[in-house]
């Protein structure tokens, strides 16, 4: 995860993109050259199903308790936004299976094609943000279930939900 967050930081401080959101820069930064390389794996087709998406997602996010309902919705939405997503997912699944990658760090350390990196990032992005697509095409799938909120749910509630009066502590004596 350290490597991933480094790459996010790097792309988000690129001067021409510094006003954009991390999510966007992440996708754009990874994707510029990505389209060129997709053809390399296009002839390799594997059966794609929800379990594959869930398996791939599990390796990409490092979590083994991902919600299958959300997985199905993210996959369907990613396919709506990218017609060739099933094919890209198959390729990525194939790479992961071939290389026996157990986590996103080792996968990203390999000589991954930019297009496959982009596919991986679009999946990670969906899980963390709960949103697929950009601007007026953006599709919200999850809010409080988005992974970005999970690390601190033991202490914080997702914005707009209530934690209860005095959740931050007792009122100090005046």
């Amino acid at each position: 995860m350290i490597r991933l967050s480094k790459s996010l930081t790097r792309s988000s401080v690129m001067p021409e993109r510094r006003v954009m959101l991390g999510r966007r820069s992440m996708l754009l930064g990874c994707g510029v050259a990505g389209l060129l390389g997709a053809a390399g794996y296009s002839s390799v087709l594997y059966a794609s199903d929800q379990t594959d998406f869930l398996k791939v997602s599990s390796i990409l996010t490092g979590k083994d308790d991902l919600d299958p309902t959300l997985a199905a919705r993210y996959e369907a939405s990613l396919t709506r936004h990218q017609a060739d997503f099933p094919k890209r997912l198959n390729i990525l699944g194939h790479i992961i299976a071939q290389g026996s990658y157990k986590d996103v760090e080792s996968l990203f350390a390999s000589s991954l094609m930019p297009s496959d990196r982009e596919t991986a990032m679009s999946i990670i992005s969906a899980w963390y943000l709960g949103v697929v697509g950009e601007a007026d095409q953006a599709e919200l799938i999850a809010f409080s279930d988005a992974l970005m909120y999970q690390p601190c749910t033991d202490v914080l509630v997702v914005p707009s939900y209530g934690a209860g009066p005095l959740a931050w502590g007792e009122k100090p004596p005046v």
């Binding site: 409080s144 509630v157 707009s160 939900y161 209530g162 209860g164 009066p165 959740a167």
Partner: peptide, 15 residues
């Protein structure tokens, strides 16, 4: 309801 009783109905603190 979920604002206080939370998305899965689990409540929180006083709720």
């Amino acid at each position: 309801c979920a604002t206080c009783h939370q998305v899965s109905g689990q409540g929180r603190n006083q709720y």
